[in-house]
Amino acid sequence: MKVKKKTIGLVIYFGLLLMPIYWMLNMSLRTNASILGSFVLFPTDATFTNYIKILTDSSWYSGYINSIIYVSINTIISLVTALPAAYAFSRYRFLGDKHMFFWLLTNRMAPAAVFALPFFQLYSSVGLMDTHIAVALAHCLFNVPLAVWILEGFMSGIPKEIDETAFIDGYSFPRFFITIFIPLIRAGVGVTAFFCFMFSWVELLIARTLTVTNAKPIAAIMTRTISATGLDYGLLAAAGMLTIVPGMLVIWFTRNHMAKGFALGRV
């Protein structure tokens, strides 16, 4: 009987959790006139107009493309630089290692609002304003430390004897690292890529500050729409639904690894 009560509670919570998302889905399938005209729990006049508009109007869909470009660049930079560093932290003691690790961590914790203004000046001065690479580099501020942190956790789980054996067998460090070590922690690499992707994807303030038109992310386009008069709720809801899709896809593919990532408490 007790078990049942728990499960009922959990199911109710999941219901509450899904309700706001369902409501947005509901709105996204209706036209603005229909939304403002009548209040219904299920869309009776479901239409894909909003989605079609977003996917055909370049001022909308270019936002998704821009976001995906800088997020991908950022994920690659983060992974490539963080992999060797995480190996160093998990295997070696060296001068200032702990302080270095702490300093990296503070950047994960630092308020983006503090960095937005100097970033704007920095990237203006080097002529990188409104480019994808600027946003990708700026997001490294919190994603590289995050990547080091998560990867270090996974690498510490691999016994050092593996490294020693490989070196005795005459493997050079780069060859060992790429052909033996990285395949061993590929789950960790997957989880890390996932979190880098997500955190760059969800960030709004820096991305908005560093872009004007050419690299404007979808998040900034959505907030612009909110402040505009004559708000089109159906369109906004559809745009919102589409921003959830990448997360949903990735979560499904990494559901088993994710639990482990969370278990390490390194999010």
Partner: peptide
């Protein structure tokens, strides 16, 4: 696990949008 993680993976501004509409 999947249901539980869902809100964590929604972009922050979309979270705001969801709750405006809701």
């Amino acid at each position: 696990l999947v249901t539980m993680s869902l809100p964590l993976l929604i972009p922050w501004n979309t979270i705001g949008t969801i709750w405006i509409i809701f």
